Each structure stands twice: as C-alpha cells, then as structure tokens.
Amino acid sequence: MAEAPPRRLGLGPPPGDAPRAELVALTAVQSEQGEAGGGGSPRRLGLLGSPLPPGAPLPGPGSGSGSACGQRSSAAHKRYRRLQNWVYNVLERPRGWAFVYHVFIFLLVFSCLVLSVLSTIQEHQELANECLLILEFVMIVVFGLEYIVRVWSAGCCCRYRGWQGRFRFARKPFCVIDFIVFVASVAVIAAGTQGNIFATSALRSMRFLQILRMVRMDRRGGTWKLLGSVVYAHSKELITAWYIGFLVLIFASFLVYLAEKDANSDFSSYADSLWWGTITLTTIGYGDKTPHTWLGRVLAAGFALLGISFFALPAGILGSGFALKVQEQHRQKHFEKRRMPAANLIQAAWRLYSTDMSRAYLTATWYYYDSILPSFRELALLFEHVQRARNGGLRPLEVRRAPVPDGAPSRYPPVATCHRPGSTSFCPGESSRMGIKDRIRMGSSQRRTGPSKQHLAPPTMPTSPSSEQVGEATSPTKVQKSWSFNDRTRFRASLRLKPRTSAEDAPSEEVA
C-alpha cells in the first residue's frame, strides 16, 4: 500500500521540484479525499487562508506561464504608474523644462484676455472677434484635454484613487474654476456660431469669465498662502490700524457733515460726507466734493493729517511682513540645501571615528588635552595620597570615625582645627580638600554678606603664586578674593596644593 505523501509545513519547496517556489498556508490543510486516503489533490490556500480556484496559477517567480503573465502585467503596471506620476508632476508640480508648457498656457490665456479687451473697442471689434473665435476653439481643445489628463493623473495619489477620489480631486477650487471656464468657452462658441440675436450679448458677457483663467496660473496657491501667512502673522497690528482709521473716518465725516450741510449742497446727507471722507483719507482725492466753510476746511485738514497716518499703516505693516517672510523662506531654502550635506558629513565622520582606533588626527579633542595637561583624576589621586601619608595610611573619614581611648597616647600629631565659614567644625583632613566650587561659593557668600568690609582692609600687593609662602596660607580663606572669576591669580592660587600645619609646630611643606 502506497504511503501518503508527508504533510509539508512552511514555505519550503517540495523535494524533486527545486526551481518551484510555492506559497503554502501556515497550517497544512488537505482535502477530505486526501485525509481519507483517496487520490485527491490537496486544496490550495492563499496567504489569508482563502481557498484558491482550481485553475488559478500559483503565485511565485517560477510558476510557469502564469508567472510570465504576472511579470508582464507587473511591468506594465509599473510603467503605467510611472507615467501617471510623471504627468501629475508636470501639471501640478512643474520643475525644470516642465515650465515651458505652463508658459505656453499663460501666453494663450493672456492673448485671449487681450483680444477680449480689444473686442470692446469699436475700431478693432470685428478683427478681434474673428481672432478670438479661432483662439477659443484652440483653448477649448487644449483645456478640455488638460482637464481630463489632470483628473486621470491624480490617481497617482492615494487620496485621489478610484471614482470617489477623482470626484474629490474635481471638487478642488482650481478644478472648479477650470470647469466653469470650459463651460463658458463652449457656451460662447455655441452662441457665436448660431448667428442669432443673442450671440452678441452672450459673447460680450461670458467672454470675461475667461479672466478666471489668470487665476489658474498659480494652481498651488503659493501667492495666496504667502499673503495669508503675512496677514495672520500681523493680524493684531492690522486690526488696530484699521480700527483707529475707521473711527477717524466716521468722526471726521460726521463733523464735516454738521459744518457743511447748510452751506454746501455736496454734503446734503451723511452718506455724501462718508464718501468724501473715504476718498480723502485714502489719499485718492477725486475733487467732486470739497468743503466751502472755514470750519469745514479746518476739520477736514486736521482729520486728514490724523487719519492718513492710520490708513497708511497697513501698507507699511504688510510690506515689512512680506520682507520678513521672504527672508525666512530664503533662510529655509539654505537650511534645506545644507541639511543633507551636513548629515552626510556627520555620518562619514562617525564611520571614520568608529573604524580608526588610533585617531591620531583628533588634535583638538579632550583626549588630546588630557594627555598634555594633568587630568583631574590625577589631581584627586594626588590629594588622596598626600592625605593618607599624613594620616598614617588612613583616609580622612576613617580618621574622624576612629575612637580614641581616654589616657591613651595619640598616634597622630595634634592638628589645628579649622572652621569653614557658615558651618560647624569639620575634620581637619578636609581643609585642604576644598575644591574650586567651594572656594568660589565661599567668595560669593563673603561678597553678599559684607562687601563694604573688603574695601576697608589695607590693599594687598598682588604677587605671583611662585613667590607666595606656603606656610602662610594655612586656610583657603587666605586666598585673595576677587569680584570676578576671570582673575588668573585667584584661579592659579585655588589650584595650588595647600599643606596642613599642626598647632604646635607648623613646618612648611611643599608638595611638588
């Protein structure tokens, strides 16, 4: 009796068929016929556990003709996506030579605008209408194809895939403007070719909807975003200037109206006075309405000098805001240009540092100066060695804690006790272990408590650290204090090793 083939788990290929790579489910599931010992083939499952149809090819690079078809379809799909992405970037994010197409579109729109203006002049109306009709045909074809291509290429973005995504893309403001202008152009052409009475009025009214094509030149909205950011950044200043200017306008108009309503027919109503105030304070000055009385002229002159300053403030605020924003954008561009080279330089330096163990090129690091100058660790070890030599091999803490019996001779020589300023008595072995921070803190506390006492003391002649007598400086308080830590004499004296002298005989010792 033939044995059933062993159940295979995992992703390994079956024996005897090495080139074939078959994806098997996580659990080997066989058909009921196979479990019962029949000759049925096992049921194939996909990666998600769903059964595959009987005629479906197995996924994998070596699955025969199905694999070749899959490779061809995958390559075609990649080319399709690449083309779609390229078209989308050309239309929505132009760079380099892609601006040539947008310059061509701008020339078409500008020519249409010029011809629309010439069509309103009686001398050039006939020729402009003929040229404009031909140009409209060209623009309908160009913009119609462009609109379709834009909607198709938007599928390269995830949020615009599918018919719902394309509809979302078509609802964008600039796409809506394109659609309105396209419909208006078709209506103008249809009305112009019919030759009816309505054609002339339709051409004159709907052609100027094509002015909206100038708005579509900035599809990404960079200028509007820049203007919005400047207004938002200086909103408080703008609101303040406009508010005060509006108050000056209504008060000036009302007072001039009261002064001129009886003697001047131009100011017969408050609305006429508001019109005069707006034209005057905005420095336009049509001259259609002028005050005639001396009181009205004085009020107009005073409020004009006051109001023009507030009406001119928004222009200066926006101008300075634009300058600052442009400078910030230039700085951001320079930062973006330098970020990648800086990151590459840091990575290269780290690779060199991690692979080169000698690091002989590091001549400006802490390790280099640590090898030249005595390190703080060596100074600490030197302090501890000196203290243990004086205390008979014991550390200062051990000397303080060691009990001394009554009447027993002390094995240590008597030492002079010292007192730290602002604290109780402490171990004499710690007097010379006072660090730089303690010395600086002690000097600052003395300056806070009594700076007036220092200038009363007789001035001391500054001497070099080499000429100081070591026996005289029994305490860190003898170090000359200065008002600034930048004094080199104080810094050098604080680094010197001060020996400890006994109370009975204080021989001067120098520590090399």
Rank of each mutant, 00 (worst) to 15 (best):
S67T: 11
G37R: 10
V298L: 07
V24E: 05
S63T: 12
L91V: 06
R81C: 10
Q164E: 06
G12V: 14
A25S: 06
I180S: 12
P53T: 02
I121T: 12
V188A: 04
P59R: 09
C157F: 07
S116P: 15
F99C: 13
A128D: 04
Q33L: 07
C131R: 10
L23V: 05
A202S: 13
G34C: 05
N344S: 12
A199S: 15
L26R: 06
V117L: 00
I308F: 10
L247V: 06
G70A: 08
R166H: 09
A98S: 06
G40A: 02
I244F: 07
S235C: 06
L209V: 11
C157W: 04
A191S: 00
L127R: 02
F110C: 06
P341Q: 15
W97G: 06
D218A: 00
D266N: 13
C156S: 15
S119A: 11
T193S: 13
L115R: 01
Y232S: 03
Q122E: 15
N89D: 07
P15H: 07
R159C: 15
A202V: 03
L127I: 03
G49V: 07
E130V: 09
C112G: 11
L11M: 01
S41T: 02
L145V: 09
E136K: 00
H124D: 15
E136A: 00
A199T: 15
L313M: 15
N129H: 04
K325T: 01
K225M: 09
Y147F: 05
C156Y: 02
S153C: 06
R219L: 00
I180T: 03
A18G: 05
Q125P: 10
G62A: 14
A312S: 09
S31N: 05
E123K: 11
F311L: 06
R219S: 01
S73P: 10
I121F: 07
P59L: 03
Q71K: 07
P61T: 12
I346M: 04
G302C: 04
Q33R: 11
P5R: 02
L324V: 15
L47R: 11
Q164H: 10
S268A: 03
L11V: 03
V149F: 00
N129K: 06
V326F: 15
L255V: 05
S41Y: 04
I134N: 05
R159G: 15
L212V: 06
G302S: 03
V151L: 09
R207S: 14
L132I: 13
M217T: 00
D17A: 10
L127F: 05
E22G: 04
P57L: 01
K78M: 14
K172E: 00
L209Q: 00
N85H: 02
T278M: 00
V256L: 02
L26P: 06
G144A: 12
K225Q: 00
R44L: 14
P19H: 03
A312G: 14
G144V: 03
I197S: 14
P5T: 05
R166S: 05
I105M: 02
P15L: 02
P57R: 03
L47F: 05
R7L: 12
S265P: 11
D272A: 00
Q125E: 06
I148F: 05
V298I: 03
G49S: 05
F254L: 14
F110L: 04
P61S: 15
